[in-house]
Design a protein around this nucleic acid. Structure first.
Length: 272
DNA sequence: AGGTTCGCCTGCGGGC
DNA sequence: TGCCCGCAGGCGAACC
């Protein structure tokens, strides 16, 4: 399940292989993704040069003169650089080939929660991107901002930080981890946060994401292998997936509850 | 308008 | 061994 650190790692990983390259081949085997792939995608892409590879939240942006290819990996999506002749398997939905390159960019997504979209003009103005919250690692994401946005919000803090309109890139795993690091109970009402809580929370989110990105950085080469990387982010999880097991700070059994239909693990002693 | 629930999907693990 | 069931989850849409 790619979260922001994974998407960032993929972005950095594929950029050297596709930047400044001109698309000369597009194969679409399955159009039924989260949104159906537009019929003329091939026509839009062929002949265009990938000028820039960017990320906004969990959306990858392959910028071209006429527009951008916007890719979201959803739950189970993967992007790999592979030798052109690599045989397609069951869930390999899209291949993109480049002039003078023996390698292709392949989009794979068993659950098809992901998206591959052609967006004309500035992709940041697309309706799915225009209202996104700040990047968690940017200076715009600070305690003042979070405090301001928390006013009058009654939802659980966990749901709040997972809302991409508040801040992008905090999925379930990192929300659990960040709240543990910050010592904040995920069930707390958002408007109970004071400036110190916001400060701790912002710091914890940045810390968790940075750590995961640097862990991902060491596996960059996996994006050019057939296998891809398998859950390198799972190595140092403090609470996620550890319900009922002892808290690594105090030893008390970690609680497991559901918030917004998502599994939530926390320490009732360390987080309040 | 904020809050909640739904639905899209497949793989996987557990129970029988 | 094989089937069925429930769960996992990002996130927009459709509700309340």
């Amino acid at each position: 399940m790619p979260e922001l650190p994974e998407v960032e790692t993929i972005c950095r990983g594929i950029a050297p292989f596709i930047k400044s390259k001109t698309i000369d081949k597009v194969i679409i085997r399955e159009t039924r993704l989260r949104w159906p792939i537009t019929r003329n995608l091939k026509g839009k892409l062929c002949g265009q040069c990938v000028e820039q590879v960017d990320r906004r939240g969990k959306y990858l942006l392959l910028r071209m003169r006429e527009g951008s290819l916007v890719i979201h990996l959803g739950m189970s999506g993967r992007l790999r650089i592979l030798p052109s002749a690599t045989k397609a398997e069951k869930h390999d939905h899209v291949d993109i080939g480049f002039m003078g390159s023996a390698q292709i960019l392949r989009f794979t997504d068993p659950r098809r929660f992901g998206a591959v979209m052609w967006v004309e003009g500035n992709p940041l103005e697309h309706k799915l991107l225009v209202n996104l919250g700040p990047e968690p690692l940017s200076k715009n994401f600070d305690k003042t901002y979070l405090l301001k946005r928390s006013c009058g919000r009654k939802v659980a803090v966990k749901s709040f930080i997972m809302d991409s309109h508040i801040v992008v890139g905090v999925g379930n795993i990192y929300a659990n981890e960040a709240l543990f690091l910050a010592g904040i109970n995920p069930l707390r009402q958002t408007n109970s946060l004071d400036v110190q809580d916001c400060s701790k929370l912002v710091c914890a989110i940045k810390t968790v994401l940075k750590k995961a990105i640097s862990a991902g950085g060491t596996t960059l080469r996996d994006f050019v292998s057939a296998e891809g990387s398998a859950g390198y982010f799972q190595q140092s999880l403090l609470v996620y997936g550890r319900g009922g097991q002892p808290c690594l700070h105090c030893g008390m059994a970690l609680e497991e509850v559901r918030i917004g239909q998502r599994s939530t693990i926390y320490c009732s002693q360390c987080q309040n």
